[in-house]
């Protein structure tokens, strides 16, 4: 490949970077709060809730994300097809049909699959963080008359955040790279485009350039987490 080719490939990949970033940020936006909720549900004293949460985590961590993406993408079309084949029509089927032909359908299924998958990992990280807080912190809060909500949000959560930063950083770095899995349903992101250009140019160079994109993104994530850790260094 000539230098001009490399420049051209980089330019095209740059155009698809926003799609990769969109997937990355929306997944974080939904999976982190969802992870907190799942961690809570897992600690629920009402056993059936805790068991169901365990099964959810087991499935999400126990099967490939790529499989989950494909399943999420084809679930609704399959449902609609089966319903039609068995002769049923009706409002609900039409709503699903409209949805699966809508502009954002692919992106929404991706966000659902990624968020549900990452929430399971985040939940386990957050649970570990919550359980690492000494019981004395709860007792001190109790003796001061803080409510359970106040205890969680004022005393426990700030300390949990500090403790889960390194493990969360790991997970976020993996997410940057996992966005490439969206290529399996032909979501127009960096990896898909790099593969196409690999064929166009009969060269492996586009893959190297794509790799550089992910590398730079993760360098930024690493630096961001470094500063986040530093920000919480004011206490031990």
């Amino acid at each position: 490949m000539s230098f001009d080719d490399i420049k051209n490939v980089s330019k095209i990949l740059m155009e698809y970077l926003p799609n990769t970033l969109k997937l990355f940020f929306f997944t974080l936006l939904f999976s982190i709060p969802l992870g907190v909720i799942v961690a809570w549900l897992k600690k629920c004293r009402f056993k059936p809730v805790s068991w169901l949460t365990n099964i959810y985590i087991l499935i999400m961590r126990g099967t490939p994300l790529m499989l989950q993406i494909v399943a999420a993408y084809y679930a609704i079309p399959m449902l609609v097809k089966n319903a039609r084949d068995s002769g049923s029509t009706g409002g609900f089927i039409e709503v699903l049909d409209d949805f699966m032909h809508s502009e954002n359908y692919m992106f929404i299924t991706l966000i659902v699959a990624f968020s549900l998958n990452y929430a399971a990992y985040f939940a386990e990280i957050f649970r570990g963080g919550i359980e690492s807080i000494p019981v004395g912190q709860y007792e001190a809060a109790q003796m001061l008359g803080l409510t359970r909500m106040q205890t969680f949000f004022r005393v426990i959560l700030p300390q949990v955040i500090k403790r889960v930063i390194p493990a969360t950083g790991n997970e976020v770095i993996v997410l940057v790279k996992d966005t490439s899995l969206a290529t399996i349903i032909a979501y127009a992101e960096i990896m898909l485009k790099a593969k196409q250009m690999m064929n166009t140019y009969s060269s492996i160079m586009p893959l190297f350039i794509a790799g550089l994109f992910y590398f730079v993104l993760n360098a930024i994530v690493t630096i961001a987490f470094h500063f986040l850790e530093k920000h919480y260094n004011y206490y031990k």
């Binding site: 000494p134 004395g136 912190q137 007792e139 001190a140 700030p158 500090k162």
Partner: peptide, 10 residues
Amino acid sequence: VFQNFNLFPH
């Protein structure tokens, strides 16, 4: 007052 203080470290 606790033996090991249990102050809020943050």
